[in-house]
Design a protein around this nucleic acid. Sequence first.
DNA 1: GTCTATAGAAAGATAGAC
DNA 2: GTCTATCTTTCTATAGAC
Lengths: 197, 197
Amino acid sequence: MPYSKAHKETTRQKILESAITLFSSKGYDQVSIDSLMQHADLTRGAFYAHFKNKKEVYCKAIFAGARKSMARVKKPEELNKKEWSRQLLSAYLSKEHVNQETFACPLAFLVTDIANKEPEIKQTYTLVYKQLNRALKKLSNNSDSSVSGLDEQDVLAITALMIGGVAIGRALDDPGTTERLLESCRNKAIELLERSS
Amino acid sequence: MPYSKAHKETTRQKILESAITLFSSKGYDQVSIDSLMQHADLTRGAFYAHFKNKKEVYCKAIFAGARKSMARVKKPEELNKKEWSRQLLSAYLSKEHVNQETFACPLAFLVTDIANKEPEIKQTYTLVYKQLNRALKKLSNNSDSSVSGLDEQDVLAITALMIGGVAIGRALDDPGTTERLLESCRNKAIELLERSS
DNA sequence: GTCTATAGAAAGATAGAC
DNA sequence: GTCTATCTTTCTATAGAC
């Protein structure tokens, strides 16, 4: 056995990383399996030893991309939940996120890429969307306080501002407008966040 | 000349109508010129007598689709501006809009289809986006009142909720969540709208 | 597991008849 | 202006050598 199991897993991860980057920035149809594998320093043929087909790697990329984004959500010790959630909103609704310099949340980068796709893809998106809402709700629940945190309406509106702001910002051809849009969404989202305390 | 100028214009409009419907629901890559022309009861070859290429008809469809959506914004006499803008938000952030039963705003249906496309396409989207913001700002300016209406931050946040809410709603595989999302965005947007009065 | 080669299908765009 | 036929490119997926 010339290739170890560990090596296969490493290769698979490399492909998945490329998939997250490329699908987020170009969408499903604009990424060919050829370009994907080239990005991962491999050739077309090797793809099918790791994934069944293009749809499968797309699903896995959405899931892994969201997981990767969420991994940044580890709260530093010195911050309380409220301060941390405010910082998160600022990082999400930032020029750097829009320009894919820090990370790329599939929820924002691929919103309209999902509609009219296979059920499996829509289910993956829905799952990840609910995870984000749950995470935000949890963050707003300050354990050492009597307040109950955000209700569902607040959470849904805040994540809509996050996803909508970043998605629109990426579509615009005018950096000034994008910057003001991000600032507006940041301010309104933080307002909703802090109103509950 | 067996075909009149009027006939050509009629045909062009028919293709454009098909383009609005199909591009909105499926996105740029999932609509072939063949399927587009079939939807307009014509064949492939006739396309190029009306449009230079696929990119051009996509741009025109975004512009015309937005114009068509905006045409519904004619204010009935019996409503004042405030009541009318509230109704507009409800029509936009509705299940019917998400399901493309009433109309399909390209700003929401195609947000992430635009990023990384040609400058001309991004410019068209940006133009239409600014039109929507301007229209909302104007509606909030109650002429027979001393209040100045919405400021830019409010407008940008409201349209982000509109576009974001509809775009996310279309991506979800769970009608219940979509309904609650739309309701949340409606409520928060109306709240922002009425706070300025 | 990864490579090259290729089958088979689909798409954008053009040519020429009517 | 609209049609059919076709050129050319690109893509997904598979086959077989190493």
